[in-house]
């Protein structure tokens, strides 16, 4: 199984993590959650470097806690658990900085004591991760109908006028709109599938 396996359910990933020999499970977990954790910290106002460092520590810490049996699924969603560890890591970073008297201009940071907003930020990051992953899947499968996906990309991402897209790709205007509608439907379907896979509700 590939490490970056977007369609694997979170529950299956967690089950596989129990096996210390299973490096692939660890890589798959890391590939899914580390970007979300980084996005989460970036949303809180942390710079790329600090966010990446805290995310890495969080994943490592989670793994240790999971294997020690400290993560109790009945006590809440996986996301909440990860956010808990991440918050602690970020606060720890801040404390160290304060001790070392390193100013980092962190005035824009939001209040990390607000659980509701923490949860919102996490949720947004998770959703965006799903969307990005859906686009990746679209890219991986675009060979089957490259012209349709290209028309979609030019129209939606390059915001080119439909007429320009039609001329460039030798399509009718109607087909350009049809391409947009079809890719949107395909993306919806992928997103729905990945949402199920990313489902963090306790089993």
């Amino acid at each position: 199984m590939e490490a970056h396996d977007a369609s694997r359910t979170t529950s299956a990933m967690l089950a596989a993590l129990a096996d210390p020999q299973n490096a692939q499970a660890w890589e798959a977990f890391d590939a899914r959650y580390r970007p979300i954790l980084i996005g989460f910290a970036r949303n809180l106002g942390y710079n790329e470097h600090d966010a990446a460092e805290a995310a890495q520590e969080t994943v490592v810490r989670f793994l240790a806690e999971w294997r020690d049996g400290k993560y109790d699924k009945s006590r809440g969603r996986l996301g909440a658990w990860l956010v808990g560890i991440m918050r602690f890591r970020l606060l720890d970073q801040r404390r160290q900085r304060a001790t070392a008297n390193i100013g980092r201009g962190e005035s824009a940071m939001i209040n990390m004591d607000d659980d509701a907003s923490m949860s919102q930020v996490w949720e947004r990051e998770r959703r965006e991760s799903v969307l990005r992953e859906s686009l990746e899947e679209l890219r991986r499968t675009s060979r089957s109908d490259p012209k349709t996906v290209k028309a979609f990309e030019m129209l939606v991402y390059h915001t080119l006028a439909p007429k320009v897209v039609a001329d460039e790709l030798g399509m009718s205007l109607h087909d350009v709109y049809l391409a947009k509608s079809r890719v949107a439907a395909r993306l919806r379907e992928i997103v729905a599938r990945l949402e199920l896979a990313y489902n963090e509700e306790p089993a």
């Binding site: 686009l135 890219r139 675009s142 060979r143 490259p146 996906v149 290209k150 979609f152 990309e153 991402y157």
Partner: peptide, 8 residues
């Protein structure tokens, strides 16, 4: 790009 360069 969402489409490999040679796909089209």
């Amino acid at each position: 790009s969402l489409v490999p360069p040679d796909a089209l």
